[in-house]
Simulated assay, not measured.
Amino acid sequence: MSRFYELDPSLENYWRAIVLFGRNTASYKFALAKSLYDLHSTGKTLITLDELAEPYAKHLCERLKKHPKQITRDQSTFLDYLRSFNEGKISHDEMIKQTVRYGFNNVIDAFHNVHGQEVGARFFTDERKTSGGIQLTDEFFQLGEQFQFGNLQEETEARWRLVETAWENNISSNLMLIEYEDISENLIGVTSIRRNSVTSARPALNGYQKGRCFYCFRDISVEPGSDDLADVDHFFPHMLKRCDSTKPLDGVANLVLACQNCNRGENGKFERLPSVELLERLYNRNEYLITSHHPLRETLIAQTGNSAAKRQDYLQTAYNCASLYVGIKQKWQPKAQGNPIF
C-alpha cells in the first residue's frame, strides 16, 4: 500500500486507498463502492448477491449508456448482458440473474487488495459460499458515521469519471490533458479536437488531501451546498502570468483545495504567494499523484516535466518568478488547524 496512507492509517484512508490506488482494468470496483454507499442506509449487514446485484447493475447500466468503455479488455460477457438490458433485449430479472452469475467473479475477491496486499481494514467479508452474499462489517458502518463519508462518495464518482475519460481517449498513446475551468469549477479534458467536461475539480483532488485544507489541515467538504465546501485555489496566483505566460495556471499541478478561511478569510491567501514550505508540500502532492499512476499523472508530467528533477525545477522557476512581484519576504502561511497528515 502507498506510504501516503500508511502514515495515517484510518478507515477513511483505507477506503481511499482502495478507490484511488487499486488496479483499474474494469470499473467494477467503483460500481461496488457506490452500491455499498447505497446499502449503508438500509442498516442490513448480510447482503445477498441478488440484493447487491440491484444497485451494482444499475450503476453500471447507467454508465454504459454514456460511456461504453468500462473495461480494458475487448469483450465482457457480463457487460454484454447489461448492454442487452439497456437495449431492451432481455428482462430486468434476466439481467439480475446474469449479474449474479458473472458480475462478481473477481471484484469481491479483489476489492480490498491494493498493490498486491490487503488494506488494514475490511469493509465486508465474502460469505458467498455459506450465506450467498457478503457481510458488511462494523468497520464499514463506522466509516459511514465519519464526517468524510459524503466526501468519499463524491471522490468515487470523480475517480470513475477520470478513469472513463482516460480509457475513452486511450490516454496511454493519445495524451489527453486536463485543465481547470473557473466558471464551471470542473476539470476539462482537452484533446486535439474537443474540450469535454470530465468531473468536478473538488472530489477529483480531495482524496490526496484526505478531506483537509491543503494549507492549514482544517476539515473541508466537497459536497455541493455544504457550509464547509472547499475552494479550488490556484497555488501560484494569476500574477505569475505577468512574468511567465507559459505556466499553466489552470493546470492540475497548480490546483489545491483550501478552506474558505485560508483562501479568502480575514487573513486569507488571496493573491499572496505561499511560503517555500508550502511549495514543498505542493511538489510532494504532485509526486504522489504521478507515482500512484492516477489518470492525472500524464497531465502532470506534460505540464511540469518528465522527471522529478525537471518538475522540481519547474516549480522553483515559477516560485522565483512570482516572488519578484510580491517581494521575497512577503510570503503567506496560515497557522495549522489540524495535524499535518500529508
Rank of each mutant, 00 (worst) to 15 (best):
Asp244Val: 00
Trp167His: 01
Phe21Ala: 14
Gln142Phe: 07
Phe124Tyr: 15
Ser200Thr: 08
Ser245Phe: 09
Gln75Met: 02
Lys69His: 04
Ala230Glu: 03
Asp93Arg: 11
Asp38Met: 11
Lys129Ala: 13
Leu11Pro: 01
Ala204Leu: 06
Ser10Tyr: 02
Phe30Trp: 02
Leu296Tyr: 08
Leu324Tyr: 07
Leu279Tyr: 04
Asp313Gln: 06
Val276Gln: 15
His294Val: 10
Ala57Pro: 07
Ser307Arg: 09
Ala308Ile: 14
Lys89Met: 03
Leu136Lys: 01
Gly207Asn: 06
Ser84Thr: 09
Ser292Glu: 06
Arg311Asn: 06
Glu12Ile: 06
Pro334Ile: 02
Leu175Gly: 07
Arg212Asn: 10
Leu60Tyr: 07
Thr156Leu: 04
Leu79Arg: 03
Phe124Val: 01
Gln117Lys: 14
Arg16Glu: 03
Val198Gly: 07
Gly207Gln: 02
Thr48Arg: 00
His40Gly: 05
Asp74Glu: 15
Gln135Gly: 07
Pro274Arg: 03
Thr299His: 06
Asn105Ala: 15
His112Ser: 06
Tyr314Ala: 08
Phe21Gln: 13
Arg264Leu: 01
His234Ile: 00
Asp231Leu: 04
Val326Ser: 01
Lys241Cys: 08
Ala158Met: 06
Val198Asn: 04
His59Glu: 06
Leu175Val: 01
Ala26Pro: 00
Leu249Val: 04
Glu298Val: 01
Gln98Tyr: 14
Asp313Trp: 00
Ser275Asp: 11
Ser84Pro: 00
Thr199Phe: 04
Val190Lys: 02
Leu60Asp: 04
Asn170Tyr: 04
Gly327Arg: 05
Asp8Met: 04
Thr45Cys: 07
Ile183Cys: 01
Asp231Ser: 13
Ile341Gly: 00
Glu12Cys: 14
Ser245Tyr: 02
Leu20Ile: 03
Lys210His: 00
Glu12Gln: 15
Asn169Leu: 01
Asp38Ser: 14
Ile18Lys: 01
Thr77Glu: 12
Asn151Thr: 05
